[in-house]
Design a protein around this nucleic acid. Structure first.
Lengths: 338, 338
DNA sequence: TTGTATGCGTTATCAT
DNA sequence: ATGATAACGCATACAA
């Protein structure tokens, strides 16, 4: 059972191969009769045009690459889902590759993408510094959209964290908290750095001093937040609230609170950074800083598709996705303030 | 800046195009001298072989399709991640498509896969009945591996739920619970049905009668579990424990327990079905039925790759992935029994 | 409007 | 061992 090609359809319909192509692709100069004969023949034979041959001839693949850096992270997975959805809506396919946070693999993936003659690619967030990775992509001939890497010369979708963090801290300050812990990994990278900046903004704007002892250095989001929080709780002037990335860091921190018999929100307030659905499992449901991950994926896909559809050269575009504070039940007045 | 092809490399190296191909693909009859000259030239020009042309010529694409039915579901995303990882380890790429639980889209995706001349595909779990979808895949010419659809004539990776559920129920029975609620959607589909079967097994094997009023019909995993649990709690002979799919169903159920001031595990025991990481956020951390999703993805990929690498016709293979009971702090002795 | 012929970039076959 | 050439399946420029 060999593969069916245009020639088979042509023979079946009694027309020339070229006409088959024209008829099936809604070409301009083709009679209604020929068109229907070709369509019938194609259906009869179950003809499926070969995308590789088509792509080779046309110089494009109708496929977009998606480079992600850790698919196991639910946040990133969500972005991928949104990208896929938007692409399929616009008739394009998605080739997914996971670089697993290794810069070297990222390079290799982009090379693979080029070999596959992809129309373009979306490069997902990375745990690595922006500058180091950015250099490789500038002047690339494959149309690229970066996510969460703010390289001015390229199309990109950036996640706003500073304002969001400011809002969160302000929320706690308004409740009377003054000693607020912040658990976010890698303060020297963009995400962590931006959060700390927002954190300090809020204190400064309130005319207060932030105590940076409450912003410990944490290596990885996969670290357990229990010990760091216990350390803070046991020192003089312990925090009365915590803003924490919603990963293992958070489950560890919650564990620490239970261990010290601190009730949420009566004795201690918590704001999580991340998925709202997960935070509903906690008791009580956690107030959290939420990001529109669907929006991130959708924007990235649209940015790329626009770039592909519009031939001319445009200035690099920047889309910013905001963070939203979702208020639940995990924040209360600072203890002893009432 | 045109694309570099074999001809360019051939000219640069002063050899014939055919020799370039042989040299780069570690062909048999090629002198060390020519080989190094070609490699140098290729490197100098930054040559990237065109995968489409290569695929067209070779009749394969080095790419495998992954059809998933809801990428936004973290469980499925995890499987996709595992599949991708295994494939890339074996030098293959992954084309990802989301059928969004619409049978019709599933068909379309498979067609697309065929057009792309993919080497094979993995078809992920679906919310729909197995029989309805299975018929479409039998006798397909694209090598296929099904996940969570037990079609005897095809390669497949199945998730074992019945034994797992039996273990979970036994665990609760041993703690003295007799009225155990089970929240799993779509009892008429495979996942739900298997769980109910395991549930009944455990009761029967203990010489007890399961009260099926505690196994309500729930339309979707996205339903909120609050009202169903409140209804059960308010009727005579309320449940003292709950086994619940770890989705919105679960957050709703936990909400209901708080609403009735039932403490976990003193007043009520809970076993969640799903990701352990999420369940660590709950207070207390929930005992849960965990599935090795990485194993599911890995097995599916391996099954497919084996089928692709070994030319002959083998009997369809079936891999089963087990469920494991992870004991945490959410189960205690049945109240009033101690 | 329709048929014919060529080329996209590769690899395999056949000469040499 | 290496070079020339055909063929994979499709779409298009050109001829009719």
């Amino acid at each position: 059972m060999k593969r069916i090609s245009v020639l088979d359809v042509a023979r079946e319909a009694g027309v020339a191969p070229g006409s088959v192509s024209r008829a099936l692709n809604n070409g301009k100069h083709v009679s209604a009769d020929l068109r229907s004969r070709v369509h019938d023949a194609a259906r009869r034979l179950g003809y499926q045009p070969n995308a590789q041959a088509r792509g080779l001839r046309l110089g494009r693949s109708n496929t977009v690459g998606m480079l992600i850096n850790d698919m196991r992270h639910p946040m990133y997975a969500r972005v991928v889902a949104a990208v896929e959805r938007e692409l399929s809506l616009r008739g394009r396919m998605m080739l997914l590759a996971d670089a697993q946070n290794e810069i070297q693999r990222e390079q290799a993936v982009i090379q693979t993408f080029q070999r596959c003659a992809l129309d373009g690619a979306i490069v997902g967030a990375s745990f690595h510094p922006v500058a180091a990775t950015a250099a490789h992509y500038e002047g690339n001939r494959l149309p690229l959209v970066l996510i969460d890497r703010d390289v001015p010369s390229m199309d990109r979708v950036c996640m706003e964290r500073r304002n969001g963090m400011r809002t969160a801290v302000r929320h706690l300050l308004a409740l009377g908290h003054r000693r607020i812990a912040l658990f976010t990994p890698a303060l020297d990278r963009v995400p962590g750095g931006e959060r700390v900046a927002g954190y300090m903004d809020a204190f400064r704007q309130a005319g207060l001093n932030a105590d940076m002892r409450h912003v410990p250095t944490l290596a990885s989001p996969l670290d357990d937040g229990r010990d760091p929080l216990l350390r803070l709780l046991d020192q003089p002037g312990p925090p009365t609230a915590l803003i924490c990335l919603g990963t293992r860091l958070l489950s560890g921190a919650l564990h620490a609170l239970r261990q010290r018999s601190l009730r949420i929100p009566e004795d201690f307030s918590v704001i999580a950074i991340g998925s709202t659905e997960m935070m509903e499992l906690a008791n009580p449901p956690l107030t959290c800083l939420r990001m529109d991950l669907d929006g991130v994926g959708r924007s990235a896909a649209r940015l790329l598709l626009r770039r592909l559809d519009e031939p001319g050269v445009h200035a690099p575009e920047r889309v910013e996705v905001e963070t939203e504070l979702v208020v639940r039940d995990s924040c209360g007045p600072a203890p002893g303030r009432r």
